[in-house]
Write a protein that binds this DNA or RNA. Structure first.
Lengths: 338, 338
DNA sequence: TTGTATGCGTTATCAC
DNA sequence: GTGATAACGCATACAA
């Protein structure tokens, strides 16, 4: 392995000078700079970051925790983080935490071990207290999911308003009996989306019927199972709002399994606008989040904190929009539910 | 930050002794070990890996390059790598190379910079020569896609045999006019799957018709466009084999867009068995790869190389299997294509 | 402007 | 079994 020593020797200067060239120090003659750069190229020298990082007490690596890379929602979020990190000379370390507190704790060790300089959570399952503890020593940003009230930065969308928009779309189409497929999870998005659903109904004089509210676990199969009971009701809903596209796909399957069709018999709205939502038939009406910008903004906030050594709490809410496709349609006038 | 020095002081021993305790050296009295461990716990000490890694000249990190985490095929492959790496005390650094040689080269710098100890490619676009150059200095393993003939380890499946099985399934159902939707890419899987398709036809006395072979670019939309021309032929195929599930989904959409139905009018087979393939209607018949084991095996080979300092080339081929679902059916006897 | 020397935190080699 | 110390590769304070 070729080290800074070898370059110094080859260039006939000291290691300090080579180091200065590497770090673009202004205090170095153009002439010697040329010589050093020539030696660097000649020897094909690459600085050993292990040495540099130790000396600088930083790793130039940001930890990014997500539930699972198999969740298609996060791919563009990660892209936003990645591009931004790279722009500032950082690498990201992508880790699946499988929504397990134990896994998250394990990965946070990487901070203490100096393998990473900061962390972005996309869907933390640790408690506010635990996160705040980390944030005392290291920059922490929450992206997408976050713990309300925790004194930690986050960047997300207004899930309640977004869900409201989605349900209002159904109401505008004439639907009044609207089912809800969600989850009983710790994630704020699940709670806020349910709130948005309820608020939209109430604001339009529609009663919230507990029997129309069903909970699954985010999976396709749970969406399928849960929706089946909705569809088989004697007085079934004419539309269903699911809090994720994957669950919405389960809902659609449940509907077609019962010999009904989307949107003719039941309209369906999802949430997230994952790539697959436009690939299925009928293409899914859903809520689109600015995924790239979510990741980008989160990374910018984190790097800003890192640069300034500040721990200012920033709370950023970005816009979302309803994408209307083919899975929602006007209520058939012939069919008049109570 | 608490260092090994602090622990030594607190325990009343030398740093050497603390280091021995940390590394489970046998030459340390149980008694002093207890004292040191107590001090470690007391101070909540965590070894600074930057120091350790510099000293040991290793990073305990493996680079994993994949085209994009948005490709759902790789999620379980990565899981297999991740679990295995963790088991041996390694972390993985997941990087999207977007099938760009430039990106791959950039990430390979991490090896020279000592940020990573080895690399696994899932779908390399660099040339055999470039990869072999890397492999001279660092452990390299190819997982899933690989460059045939390169003197580099790889673990994959027999794509030709798998495709053969898929097409034979269609032939067994009575189909003789079978379309192919693939890509003209550098990836071996694309080539081998096309070969498997052709071989299956020839082995069963079916002529290979160039007009039934269509190429796209792996995307849903390209599958859709390409299949449209197949479906609109006056003498359209009664079955279509696509080399990926995502393209198969495009094919299915093209079929239903034309007012036809799957599998009644056209049977469809995909490849990869991504999660979504069982979520769509009708559920997709496809080829399942042992994704977890692919990743696991690749990582094991890499870590083995790292441990032994050997560069032995291993070529591992794992089994795949056809998963028959609802998108394939027997040829309707009423409809008799030429 | 350049060189010398020290230290980042750890491990490992040598004495004892 | 334990301790003092050099060394990993680099950046920087200080001296020249």
């Amino acid at each position: 392995m070729v080290t800074i020593q070898d370059v110094a020797k080859a260039a006939g200067v000291s290691v300090a000078t080579v180091s200065r060239v590497l770090n673009n120090s202004p205090r170095v003659t153009p002439e010697t700079r040329m010589i050093v750069e020539a030696a660097i190229k000649e020897l094909n020298y690459q600085p050993n970051l292990l040495g540099r990082n130790l000396r600088r007490a930083e790793s130039k690596t940001i930890l990014v925790l997500l539930p699972s890379i198999s969740n298609p929602f996060y791919s563009r979020v990660v892209r936003g983080m990645e591009d931004t990190a790279q722009k500032y000379g950082y690498n990201i370390m992508l880790c699946n935490d499988y929504s397990e507190a134990e896994m998250e704790k394990n990965y946070l060790e990487l901070l203490k071990k100096r393998i990473a300089d900061g962390v972005i959570f996309t869907a933390p399952v640790l408690s506010a207290g635990e996160l705040e503890d980390i944030a005392k020593d290291y920059p922490v940003v929450q992206c997408c999911e976050y713990i309300p009230g925790a004194s930690l930065s986050h960047v997300s969308i207004d899930n309640e308003a977004a869900a409201y928009k989605a349900v209002k779309h159904l109401i505008d189409l004439g639907h009044r009996r609207i089912g809800f497929v969600g989850t009983q999870s710790v994630f704020i998005s699940a709670i806020q989306r349910e709130n948005g659903y309820k608020k939209a109904l109430l604001d339009h004089g529609i009663e919230v019927s507990p029997e129309l509210i069903q909970y699954g676990n985010y999976g396709f199969l749970s969406g399928l199972n849960v929706a089946r009971s909705l569809v088989k009701m004697k007085n079934r809903p004419t539309a269903i709002f699911a809090i994720s596209d994957v669950m919405a796909m389960g809902v659609m399957r449940a509907i077609t399994d019962c010999g009904l069709s989307v949107p003719k018999d039941v309209s369906v709205v999802g949430f997230d606008n994952i790539d697959f939502s436009s690939m299925i038939s009928p293409a899914l009406t859903t809520v689109s989040q600015p995924r790239y910008r979510l990741g980008q903004t989160a990374m910018e906030i984190l790097l800003e904190q890192l640069k300034n050594g500040t721990r200012e709490v920033k709370e950023v809410i970005l816009d979302s929009k309803l994408v209307i496709r083919d899975s929602t349609g006007a209520l058939k006038s012939a069919y008049t539910p109570v």
